[in-house]
């Protein structure tokens, strides 16, 4: 029984830590919120395990409240992300690093050089359909181009 309980706690701890890594390293606003949700999963798993150890329902009831708060948090965070995206047209969190205290050194000097070298992958090639129907007269074509 005991080792069994600690294995579940271990999974909860690993999920929490993975969410923390995702929150710290990713630069996409949406992915940061998603990583926070992963951390909540780890905490929920630990709470349910504690409830089973103590043989009562407090852990499960607490997890239901976590679920409620997570739903509220996701809704509000995504509304905020949309509002921020409308201002900046990018989801990059580094765009908002101007909000920090002035005069601090930037850790992005090395990254910016590599980012400039980032080439956007070419757009996907879709097949072109041959236009159907009667071919327009040359006079009509010129008229439509002029207008």
């Amino acid at each position: 029984m005991t080792g069994d309980v600690e294995r579940y706690l271990m999974v909860g701890a690993i999920l929490f830590v993975l969410g923390a890594i995702g929150f710290l390293t990713r630069r996409n606003l949406i992915l940061m919120v998603l990583s926070a949700e992963l951390m909540l999963h780890g905490v929920s798993l630990s709470l349910v395990t504690f409830g089973r150890v103590h043989n009562n329902f407090q852990g499960q009831a607490f997890t239901i409240f976590i679920l409620t708060v997570a739903a509220c948090e996701a809704g509000l965070a995504l509304a905020l992300v949309l509002a921020l995206y409308q201002k900046s047209k990018t989801l990059d969190i580094d765009f908002w690093s101007d909000l920090r205290e002035p005069g601090l050194p930037s850790h992005r000097v090395a990254e910016q050089a590599e980012e400039l070298a980032f080439v956007e992958p070419p757009p996907a090639e879709y097949p072109h359909l041959t236009p159907a129907g009667r071919e327009p007269k040359a006079k009509q074509l010129a008229a439509s181009k002029r207008s």
Partner: peptide, 8 residues
Amino acid sequence: TAYDQRSR
């Protein structure tokens, strides 16, 4: 996007 290709 460029910011998804690199982690901080």
